[in-house]
Design a protein around this nucleic acid. Sequence first.
DNA 1: TTACAGAATTTCGTATGCAAAAGACACTCC
DNA 2: GGAGTGTCTTTTGCATACGAAATTCTGTAA
Lengths: 248, 248
Amino acid sequence: MSEPATPFPGGAVNRRRATRGTLGEAAGRKVERPAPLRQAVYEALIELIVNRTLQPGQHLVEIELAEYLGVSRQPVREALQRLQTEGWVDLRPAQGAFVHTPTEQEADQLLSVRSVLETHSARLAAEHAGEQDVEQLWELQREGVDALAADDVDRLVTANASLHAFITNLSGNAVLAELIGLVDRRVRWYYTPIARPRGEDAWGEHEQLIQAIAAGDAEQASRIMTVHTERTRLAYHEERQAQTRSNS
Amino acid sequence: MSEPATPFPGGAVNRRRATRGTLGEAAGRKVERPAPLRQAVYEALIELIVNRTLQPGQHLVEIELAEYLGVSRQPVREALQRLQTEGWVDLRPAQGAFVHTPTEQEADQLLSVRSVLETHSARLAAEHAGEQDVEQLWELQREGVDALAADDVDRLVTANASLHAFITNLSGNAVLAELIGLVDRRVRWYYTPIARPRGEDAWGEHEQLIQAIAAGDAEQASRIMTVHTERTRLAYHEERQAQTRSNS
DNA sequence: TTACAGAATTTCGTATGCAAAAGACACTCC
DNA sequence: GGAGTGTCTTTTGCATACGAAATTCTGTAA
């Protein structure tokens, strides 16, 4: 592809930058623009991958996805681009998209990275949390303990996700939050078939964590989160090994 | 968009998964498939963004990019999708692509995340490095010190990047390496106009770091990397403030 | 039967076309 | 003079078309 030396047409001028802007934006409200189809396709495909309608390794033929979702190939292709960069599918030139097949190694690497990121997020949360935030945390904790007592797995998983997400937001670092979100979704996908919540242990650790955050003890919060996530990591491994044994 | 309850056509069967594969693959060689145009467009656009031919906030009109690069809109659109998920451009529905404008806050958040990731990478590197790896590290260190002595900024920047990249690879965690690569490129972009290598301090820290890695002292390597990256972060801030002052 | 060669089919990658939304502009009305 | 409104232009988003690459199928020969 040629890349001429001439300056890009339009040059340094931002022809449209900061033009008048709509009323809604001026008032601080977000203007609801209709989300493009590719966005809907993107979300639909993640759902199909996570719930294993589309299985790891499966070849995704564009026209089939398009017809299945009632759109043309174009938005499907654009969604696949994004899905690739986020690690959900692999695009092989001239062959198309394949649902990503995670190796055990890769899954463990993700857990490792997640542990580091969440630990950092816990540290920052402890530095930033205010009284109201702590109150919210206890609220979420109660919800989790309730779900545990009721033996309601779905609620438990949701509560766990909410608690971690809240801490992530407390960190005040949006980049960090985004990375954690991305890593976390993939971790869940990989381990969905084998994951069994750790239950009481985990929620005990959550309680300690919230206490540390409430006390503004960043070091302590950080340590607890490291232990917490590493234990989760180990739990996954044990679960997996148990399954491997039972399968052989 | 409709999402019928019928199973996805092709269902659970991976029609093409693990088919015969070409000779080259069987022999363990990678078959060189011609990279799609979108790949070239993607790389060209990053280059144009990093070297500021395309400036932050600038509206990227698809047809203009396409003509400039000598392709049609389609590969441009697909490249833009990827660039968005990696944070280089913002895609506003029905408005198009705009070169991302980093806020100071976002830049600092990236530096913070990078620090954490690099610290983890240093720890893992210390755990995994073999004799040959350490030898390589010293080689890269010598190159950096040489460049420093010669006052060759370009060589210095390259050497710094090489050293960090090598440590990242030593970590043995591909997911981690990928994230660091992504974060790192954006950090460099943000700070290109103001960055001035820290020079002697940084390379002194590198030397300590390599010693820790050589000794297999993961904790020490981790500590040094944290200090190293946080100092870099501070240096960026000071530089920026100095510029802000001189501009006012 | 197995291996191979070539044709047929499938699927991708790119280009082009078209409707709709957003923005720019000029005009009117107050 | 300024706000509001209608029209024109630009640009996006999606659909469709077509050539090229890859895979699969089929027939033949050893």
